[in-house]
């Protein structure tokens, strides 16, 4: 992220009325003044509100510095500023020693974080590196799901993430982008093998794959996300509701309940 030219103002999102309450499993909130991807919470809300998104899981675009708790506190401030709108996932670098695990536990207990986000392109660690395995295991112990960026780059491939899911079967792992443009079939094969792997549907344009995933995995293993605000929630909802026949029938599961079941909030009532 070195592109410092300011982007044009975000045009208003088209509107859409979803058939059920919607929670977005993948939204970025990260204040980056002067950067094209500058995403304050208000930008997220500008794309959520026109399509009826109740809540969004938010995370920054880069790894949180383990030496400082300020960035995690910032997420909590956004959540407090807009009550009921944001669910917090901690985007951590698995790091050395137990620093990340302790930080995650603190974020959950003191700040209300409900998930872990890992992006191997950002942290340069294999999903099966012991540091990553330990952090994902810790998340599972805390009752949190882990959202992985799962695309076409080294370390993020389904073949990288699948073995982690096998090694930590107690962890709920969301494959964000379902393997991207070129590895979606592999993601589906791994999801068939590992019941703790979920398809997070953001930004993938191959709708035949989503159809196959629904038919193969059933409606409880797909979780809708937008990767907003850069990827437009309107388009992500449009592809599931207006284009894919049969998806609307499972709307409550796809758009909210599958995610909600994985989060600690429900289990605590």
């Amino acid at each position: 992220m070195s592109c410092l030219a300011p982007s044009p103002p975000t045009p208003p999102s088209p509107t859409l009325t979803p058939p059920c309450p919607v929670w977005d499993a993948h939204m970025h909130v990260h204040v980056l003044p002067g950067h094209k991807w500058d995403s304050p919470p208000e930008r997220a809300l500008r794309v959520m509100d026109p399509v009826g998104i109740e809540k969004a899981v938010i995370m920054p675009y880069s790894e949180i510095d383990l030496s400082s708790r300020e960035e995690l506190e910032l997420g909590a401030r956004y959540a407090a500023e807009y009550p009921g709108r944001f669910l917090l996932f901690a985007r951590l670098h698995p790091g050395e020693g137990s620093g990340a695990e302790e930080l995650l536990e603190w974020a959950v207990k003191d700040l209300g974080y409900v998930g872990l986000k890992l992006h191997p392109v950002g942290n340069h660690l294999s999903p099966t590196d012991p540091r990553t395995v330990n952090l994902v295991r810790k998340a599972a112990q805390l009752g949190l799901p882990t959202l992985f960026h799962c695309g076409d780059e080294e370390l993020t491939l389904p073949d990288d993430i699948g073995p982690l899911a096998e090694r930590v079967p107690e962890a709920a792992i969301l494959m964000g982008h379902c393997g991207g443009y070129f590895h979606a079939n592999s993601a589906l094969e791994w999801a068939k093998r590992c019941p703790n792997l979920y398809f997070e549907t953001s930004a993938i344009p191959d709708l035949r794959l989503l159809r196959r995933a629904l038919d193969t995995l059933g409606p409880h293993r797909l979780i809708w996300g937008s990767d907003g605000p850069g990827c437009l929630p309107y388009l992500e909802l449009h592809k599931m509701l207006a284009i894919l026949p049969g998806f609307e029938r499972h709307a409550p599961d796809l758009f909210r309940d599958n995610l909600r079941r994985l989060l600690p909030l429900d289990r605590e009532g």
């Binding site: 045009p11 088209p14 443009y181 344009p205 191959d206 709708l207 035949r208 437009l232 309107y234 388009l235 449009h238 592809k239 207006a242 284009i243």
Partner: peptide, 19 residues
Amino acid sequence: SGHPWMDERLELERVRILP
């Protein structure tokens, strides 16, 4: 559209909603 790897209906909508 990028058919068959992408979907005409989604791709047309992507352009239709541009400012």
